[in-house]
């Protein structure tokens, strides 16, 4: 009897629980923002490379009843390179998808030994979105950098927003170097520069590759060949004295790094790619190169690895190349 009663009460309890469990929560209207507030997003994706900008969009607003915006500033943990600034224009996007600027103050001033950029508002406004362009300095390579965005309002309030820390790549970048067959044909990975024969003869230890173009055989075309390669791959080339380095090369196709390809495509080469690429048993020449192809490079002394991207080629015997270099 006791057992039957227990079963009955248990069933009632389960039914009651199921009824209350389905009770709907009442929607509560969100409280409108009643004070100075801010928000930030990082617009740049991909690795942060020295000399290239990291772009942020910093939004700030205060209810009209509370006052207006007075100033906005950004402080970076490492002073930015030349060209770092906080925009003095607020942007909105029109129906055509175009960003339209509205001037809100005078151009930003750099304070605190280059660490901070500040914009003072000269118009009466209570909302703005300012862009911040931080040029990664050479000193930041391999470190992390953080940012503190802040805004002051006429009611004496301050709001701030922290971004980062962000890893700064150890890579260096050099874009749009023109190489030509027989003239500016000598490439230095260490200097990230192109030399002619006379200049190359003065720095033979720095010359890692020779650019050459041969129409025959048809599979040769544009080539990057190390001075130490077999003479078969340097037909008709008289090397300046002292050039003998044997640089390893690995051909790649379809790796159009966005930074090297002048902001086309959506692929990025990062530090980890350069450290993890397998260069074992790779040859010391790469021929048959074409536009949008590339080569991984490892210098003879294993001091540097690089990724050379072929931006464009010309059948008359020249090419435009860009490179990312990593110090091992």
């Amino acid at each position: 009897m006791l057992y039957r009663n227990f079963n009955f009460f248990f069933l009632v309890w389960v039914l009651l629980t199921s009824l209350t469990a389905c009770q709907e929560e009442e929607y509560i209207l969100p409280e409108p923002i009643s004070q100075l507030t801010n928000d930030c997003l990082k617009r740049t994706i991909g690795p942060s490379i020295a000399s290239l900008p990291i772009e942020f969009a910093y939004a700030m607003a205060i209810p009209k009843s509370q006052g207006k915006l007075v100033s906005a500033q950004v402080e970076a943990s490492i002073p930015g390179g030349t060209g770092t600034y906080l925009e003095h224009r607020s942007y909105y996007t029109n129906s055509g998808g175009v960003d339209i600027p509205v001037t809100i103050g005078s151009p930003s001033t750099v304070v605190d030994a280059g660490k901070s950029s500040k914009v003072t508002f000269t118009v009466d406004t209570n909302a703005a979105t300012l862009r911040y362009y931080y040029i990664v300095p050479d000193e930041a390579k391999g470190q992390t950098v953080s940012f503190t965005f802040s805004v002051n309002s006429s009611d004496g309030k301050t709001a701030s927003y922290k971004m980062g820390p962000y890893n700064i790549s150890k890579m260096s970048i050099k874009k749009n170097l023109t190489v030509s067959n027989g003239t500016n044909a000598f490439i230095s990975i260490e200097d990230m520069a192109i030399y002619n024969a006379t200049s190359a003869a003065a720095i033979p230890d720095k010359i890692d590759l020779v650019y050459l173009y041969r129409a025959s055989p048809t599979s040769f075309t544009h080539g990057l060949v190390s001075p130490g390669a077999d003479a078969t791959f340097l037909p008709g080339v008289t090397l300046p004295s002292g050039l003998k380095k044997s640089t390893k090369l690995r051909k790649v196709f379809g790796l159009q790094d966005r930074n090297l390809a002048n902001l086309q495509f959506g692929i990025y080469v990062d530090d980890i790619d350069l450290t993890s690429v397998d260069m074992t048993d790779m040859p010391n020449y790469a021929i048959g190169l074409r536009a949008e192809a590339g080569v991984w490079v490892e210098t003879a002394d294993k001091k540097y690895r690089a990724y050379i991207y072929i931006n464009s080629v010309n059948a008359t015997g020249s090419a435009v190349i860009s490179m990312l270099r990593y110090t091992l």
């Binding site: 055989p217 040769f220 078969t232 048993d281 790779m282 040859p283 021929i287 048959g288």
Partner: peptide
Amino acid sequence: VLFGTDLKN
């Protein structure tokens, strides 16, 4: 194979 093919890889 094409001239210059690196048959090691």
